[in-house]
Amino acid sequence: MIPGSAALEAVELTLRHRRRTLLDACSLRLPRGAVCGVVGPNGAGKSLLLSAAAGLVGPDSGRITVLGRPAGSAQALPAVGYLDQRRSLYRRMTVAELLATGRRTNVRWHQDRALELLGLGRVPLDARIGALSGGQRTLAALATVRGKAPQLMLLDEPLAELDPLVRRAVLGLLLADVADHGATVMLSTHILTDLDEVVDHLVLLDAGQVRLAGQLSELLTAHRFVDRDGSSVLVRRERPDAAAADADGPTLDELVVSYLHAPGPGRWLAPGMRPDAPHGALIA
């Protein structure tokens, strides 16, 4: 990969389908080693952003690169792992065959890492994929992602369908990869509590637009509640004041909800997540 390049960079990424704009000029830059939560209401474009990063859907305009290479290119593919929302696997394969396929179709393959993940849910290797439960299927799909030891993991709702104990163990393994190999994780969810103490970056999508993106601490210190006409209003400070961010700072929940309910499209891309491109720094 290109050293020093961002894990993911989107510049004015736009995707349309039958005259509907599903991703609308999304710009963001995710540094390597980040654990980034992608949140937003249903239909906000979370899955689409991830599959665009995986190279499965191409932009109608703008561009998206991963690890410094165009998304989906031959150079990018070996280093990117993608878990799709539907866990599309060959149903008639056994789990062992699925892993064997992963080994044959990747440059590197770490069977131990894949097996470690499967072990969390006691997924039998000789079971057919079609016979697995939803959670087990998720683990099988995640095993193929982790087996290729990607530098960038794009995980669409990785925790859905997993029971709470397995959920924590799975997150633990994925985060251990971040600690071990400097991997970058981008995971979507619509359950904010999933992200608690897990992510260090956040992207809030709404109606195909990036409403909020930045390092978590950056986002939280940049906002505070003030009293205005007797009601509490969230305001953004262009110069974050860490010392003042105690009592009147928002929680993650409050921040997200405030942006989603803001009258008029409030948008903010924290400096740390702005692409380098000249027209990338869009601040509404």
């Binding site: 599959s51 995986a54 190279g55 499965l56 989906g72 290119s73 031959a74 593919l77 070996p78 990117v80 792992g81 993608y82 799709d84 539907r86 599309s88 696997l89 060959y90 992963g102 179709t105 990747n106 440059v107 799909a141 193929t144 290729k148």
Partner: peptide, 12 residues
């Protein structure tokens, strides 16, 4: 939907 699996391995 298996193209999503097949086309996101290392093989273009």
């Amino acid at each position: 939907g298996t193209y999503r699996l097949a086309w996101t391995q290392a093989v273009p």
